[in-house]
């Protein structure tokens, strides 16, 4: 089953020195991680809505919250418990959060 891990952090919070690094995590999830990337800051985001014939653009993210999506990873796991374990070990889970979303198809 494929899961999308949405990595969310509040960018005013700094990671604690000595925490596991993203490189360590990437090495750990090798074989399970199919894809993933960091995303540029929400300052560079554009939100698009189509209403009738009109395309409405907003400068910024679709939701103004403290935590913003800063990256994503697609992992292939046996079940939710395995996805939770992988998510819980992502460095950003320590000071931000990771939303685990199953894909529609396995």
């Amino acid at each position: 089953m494929k899961y999308m891990l949405l990595i969310c952090v509040d960018d005013t919070i700094e990671p604690t020195a000595g925490d596991p690094t993203i490189e360590q995590w990437l090495a750990e999830v090798e074989g399970r991680r199919l894809d993933g990337s960091q995303l540029r800051s929400v300052q560079d985001a554009t939100t698009v809505r189509t209403r009738g014939d009109e395309v409405l653009l907003t400068d910024g993210p679709f939701a103004e919250t403290k935590e913003q999506i800063v990256g994503y990873d697609v992992v292939d796991c046996a079940d939710l418990d395995e996805a939770i374990r992988i998510a819980s070990r992502h460095p950003c889970a320590r000071y931000g959060s990771v939303e685990v979303r199953p894909f529609y198809t396995g």
Binding site: M1, A78, D79, L80, D81, V100, P102
Partner: peptide
């Protein structure tokens, strides 16, 4: 069903 919560007794570490 959709998130595939496993149908099992959790392994020892959990």
């Amino acid at each position: 069903r959709n998130a595939r919560i496993p149908y099992r007794v959790p392994p020892a570490h959990l």
